[in-house]
Design a protein around this nucleic acid. Sequence first.
DNA 1: CTTGGCACGATTGTCGACAATTTTGTTGGT
DNA 2: ACCAACAAAATTGTCGACAATCGTGCCAAG
Lengths: 245, 245
Amino acid sequence: MKDISIEDPSWASASPSLGPAADPAAEQITRAIERDIFRGRLRPGEKLREEELAERFEASRHHVRAALARLAQIGIVVKERNRGALVRRFTADEVQQIYEIREMLQRQATLRIALPAAQETVQRLSTINDGYEEAVRSGDFHRIHETNDRFHTELFGLCGNELLVSLINNYMELTYAIRGAAFADPENLDKSREHHRIMLRLLSGTDSWALAQICVDHIQITKEQYLSTLRESAEAPTLSSRMGP
Amino acid sequence: MKDISIEDPSWASASPSLGPAADPAAEQITRAIERDIFRGRLRPGEKLREEELAERFEASRHHVRAALARLAQIGIVVKERNRGALVRRFTADEVQQIYEIREMLQRQATLRIALPAAQETVQRLSTINDGYEEAVRSGDFHRIHETNDRFHTELFGLCGNELLVSLINNYMELTYAIRGAAFADPENLDKSREHHRIMLRLLSGTDSWALAQICVDHIQITKEQYLSTLRESAEAPTLSSRMGP
DNA sequence: CTTGGCACGATTGTCGACAATTTTGTTGGT
DNA sequence: ACCAACAAAATTGTCGACAATCGTGCCAAG
């Protein structure tokens, strides 16, 4: 396929597995589709035709198939035999369950961070966060996404359990379709930046509970955003239901 | 491939994804390899050649490849590009991290169970556990494995978060290579049965903490077993090092 | 006008063959 | 006897083509 790798965020190494990606081509397609889902170019329920994707990414259909299989295993895509793949549409219940787990994982990881953190550690995270703030100002969707995830990965990385970090990342991946919408709203971005600053401040203190709580609060933004849009579309008649008699 | 499906444990549906297995053939091979790893027929570090597996399971190499890719994503197998797949060999550190997560997940799931549990619920679990006890008596490795996992899946299923249950199952899957050894020792099986009985008793009480603790203690058996065999093999010279001058 | 069946087009699933890469075995030199 | 370069075998990775399946539009019967 065409070499899309503008950057290769190794920190987003998804699976609990390790080493060099087993299949680089499929891996790139997987990431590309994830990005498209995140930015809303691909919307929940949308069909993913293999040949179309193959043409778009200039790859063979086999690699696209592999990528779709992987996305299905992540849970961001749903595959039905002989019927193709769709971008997964999450119900309110599913969102609740997913976020219950995200909250739990992030809380536990945060509580394992030794406070106060070393000054240079805080400095490193501050630098990353500066990149995030700049990305927000520039409005570059892709860079906002990237720097935000990087910030959290580095933060949770302080817990000392790499496997736990990759598990948290897995659930970040799973919520691409859920989180995307929230990142388009400037108000949410403001709240998000404020949260990041508080986290940095708390890292120099000793109140692990407060840090854990702010991390949990942080993800409520995207959760509530998605649930409210879900309620709206439930009240408002959908296109298909308006097509009735 | 040859239809191996003596039984189809849908409760072991691994991934957070849903619906009918996208690729039944690869799925069966995946499970078959998992079983072989669990029972020790395939040992850590052992190479998995695609053609050999294809012949053994009477399937095409493509399906075997898909199965290996999946096992690699689960983390039970390691793939290196152009060099094939090996059964993953876990270091002591990795085992610690994995079990730290297992403990966390199981504790949290258990604490979410409303106590006391309904009498018929306890009854249902008792029935499943009877099957386990009988399997232990019969010595049928495969059935011990199956009934044990089923018992825990049903138990954690009481927490109300299906996604959390499937996550716990994922980590059960990941530890097949670790847990296998422990199940061969009758002494461990005794301890395991005793734990199960205690769990059933606690379900009728109101002490969530005690229930959570016994669930955590329960998995220490397999963890310590693996770590001790790891230490042994570290002290004893390996075959390759004995081959020196 | 509705309904059931049928054939066609579109899409996914599977296979065999071939290319690329690694590993193993051999040979020649020092 | 040891090492390096090379050749052969074994193994994995990729592709194009074909088979199987599903959705749709059409036609005829009720």
